[in-house]
């Protein structure tokens, strides 16, 4: 996973709240094997009309937002299904940062695991960011992960929230499986202790 510390780019305003991952990445494309090539299916039901042509009214189909690398989304973004295809598709479209007032739990974890910054702001700031980005001339944002700040000409320099551990992970971009495997002795120790305390949990699928 490549590290990310500071990112500047066009931010697309997408104010709809409670956007679920079915909407971000519809089910008919869940069988696609290549996680790096999912951009065409991102927001498919919104980006394309039922006859297959581009919907010119959808924000990511309009200039300059068709080149957006930041998405400013309404409250409770990424709810519903755990499908990691949602962040894969966002990333493959080019999105590196998300700004919202609330992210769904599983989706947020999936973003961190794919090097996408979920920046949480207050409702008031979200409205201000959406408003600024709606003007194509003012839609450039900088996300400074190191300082936990957003910068934009209209909004100014404002704080966003992200936990220390999530921030660290994104800054370093290290492989979390390697990190955990470095703790193998602790895992094996737990296995031993728990096999004594609750041996039935240690049985798993090995009993017939």
């Amino acid at each position: 996973m490549e590290p990310i510390s500071m990112h500047s780019g066009i931010a697309a305003p997408f104010p709809m709240s409670d956007v679920n991952t079915d909407l971000i990445y519809p089910q008919q494309f869940l069988r696609k094997p290549d996680r790096g090539a999912m951009a065409p299916f991102l927001f498919h039901g919104l980006r394309y009309r039922s006859d297959g042509t581009l919907n010119p009214d959808f924000i990511l189909n309009k200039e300059p937002y068709d080149e957006a690398t930041i998405l400013i989304a309404g409250r409770n973004f990424g709810s519903g299904s755990s499908r990691e295809h949602a962040p894969w598709a966002l990333k493959s479209f080019g999105i590196r940062c998300l700004i919202s007032s609330m992210f769904a739990d599983i989706f947020k974890a999936n973003c961190i695991n794919n090097g996408i910054v979920p920046a949480t702001v207050s409702e008031g700031l979200l409205t201000a960011c959406l408003h600024a980005a709606a003007n194509p001339q003012e839609s450039r944002f900088t996300v400074d992960l190191e300082r936990r700040e957003l910068r934009n000409r209209l909004v100014g320099t404002v704080p966003f929230e992200i936990s220390d551990s999530d921030r660290d992970r994104l800054l370093k971009g290290n492989d979390f499986i390697d990190d955990t495997l470095a703790q193998l002795p602790a895992i094996e120790n737990h296995e031993k202790v728990s096999a004594e305390a609750a041996p039935w949990l240690n049985l798993g699928a090995s009993v017939e």
């Binding site: 755990s82 599983i106 999936n110 695991n113 979390f176 495997l181 193998l184 895992i187």
Partner: peptide
């Protein structure tokens, strides 16, 4: 529920 990267993590580490 967990994401797919996490599924890989659980398979490799059981944590």
């Amino acid at each position: 529920g967990i994401g797919i990267s996490e599924v890989e993590h659980v398979l490799a580490t059981q944590t």
